[in-house]
């Protein structure tokens, strides 16, 4: 427990900065909606007719003239990408930062098993993604209330559950990388998150690449789909859970046997 609290304290500022930045950007996007709305229908037509580009960002499924359509796309842009990068960054440095900063020797010469260290660090990472998601959701609700739009509770919750699961998946994979990494591994973590993002765009472009959707958490964190169908895509979530478990298992196996030099 001590280590869990210590971890949260250590990453306090990173969490605050990312949460505020994401909440602020999403909030702004929501607050400007009333000014955008009149042109939205035209823009909606325009976006709807850009072929591959439209599909790539899931805009073929959505009515831009409606607030919740707009909300889903903005969520995807801001929380989807921002949250993914935060999760990757937090996960990938969780274990490796101790070696990079030479604090591993301090931590690992205290009577705490490596398995426990891994478990508590993972818990701290997942807690941070949850805190970020909930805080951003509350900010989004506030902004929605400010512009006088009604909140569709089911869609809202499904949307944020999907984004949270996506962050958890990316965090777990990054966490696995972290156990192997000698440096901070930031490049590997961010690179992995961005790659998954582009894999999703590719898979949206053509039906032939549909199978790629099982590889990327952005497939189920698809605001447009969730808002227009009011369901989550559990087959992709299940595939994501497998990747996440793989990352966690790798972290435990590697970190409990690793030489700390």
């Amino acid at each position: 427990m001590t280590l869990f609290i210590h971890e949260l304290k250590q990453s306090k500022w990173s969490l605050i900065i990312w949460t505020v930045a994401i909440a602020y950007m999403l909030g702004i996007a929501i607050v400007i909606y009333p000014q955008m709305a009149p042109q939205m229908n035209e823009m909606g037509d325009m976006f709807a007719n850009m072929g591959g580009f439209t599909a790539a960002f899931g805009m073929d499924q959505i009515n831009f003239g409606e607030f919740w359509g707009y909300f889903a796309i903005e969520c995807g842009n801001v929380l989807g990408l921002g949250g993914a990068l935060f999760a990757a960054l937090t996960g990938v440095s969780a274990l490796s930062k101790e070696q990079k900063d030479n604090t591993a020797e301090f931590l690992l010469t205290h009577p705490i098993s490596r398995r426990r260290i891994v478990a508590l660090k993972l818990a701290a990472v997942l807690t941070q993604t949850a805190v970020l998601t909930v805080a951003v959701m509350l900010a989004a609700c506030l902004a929605t209330a400010v512009i006088g739009e009604s909140i569709k509770l089911k869609e809202l919750l499904l949307l944020f559950v999907a984004y949270l699961l996506m962050q958890v998946q990316i965090a777990c994979i990054s966490f696995g990388i972290s156990a192997f990494s000698r440096g901070r591994g930031i490049g590997a973590g961010l690179g992995m998150a961005l790659m998954l993002y582009f894999v999703n765009i590719l898979s949206n472009l053509t039906d032939r690449l549909e199978a790629l959707k099982y590889l990327t958490p952005f497939a189920y964190a698809d605001g447009a789909y969730i808002v227009s169908n009011s369901v989550l895509q559990f087959e992709y979530i299940a595939a994501g859970a497998v990747f996440a478990l793989f990352g966690i298992t790798a972290a435990f196996i590697r970190y409990t046997t690793k030489d700390i030099t």
């Binding site: 001590t2 280590l3 210590h6 250590q10 900063d101 030479n102 604090t103 020797e105 301090f106 931590l107 010469t109 205290h110 009577p111 705490i112």
Partner: peptide, 29 residues
């Protein structure tokens, strides 16, 4: 480890912490 006191040759601690906080963290661990 619970019965040993170890001093590494190069000591590094977490950034931004005070001496008292490091000592307390070590004791709590």
């Amino acid at each position: 480890l619970s019965r040993v006191g170890y001093l590494p040759s190069e000591t590094a601690f977490y950034n931004g912490m005070r001496v008292s906080e490091v000592l307390e963290l070590s004791a709590r661990l």
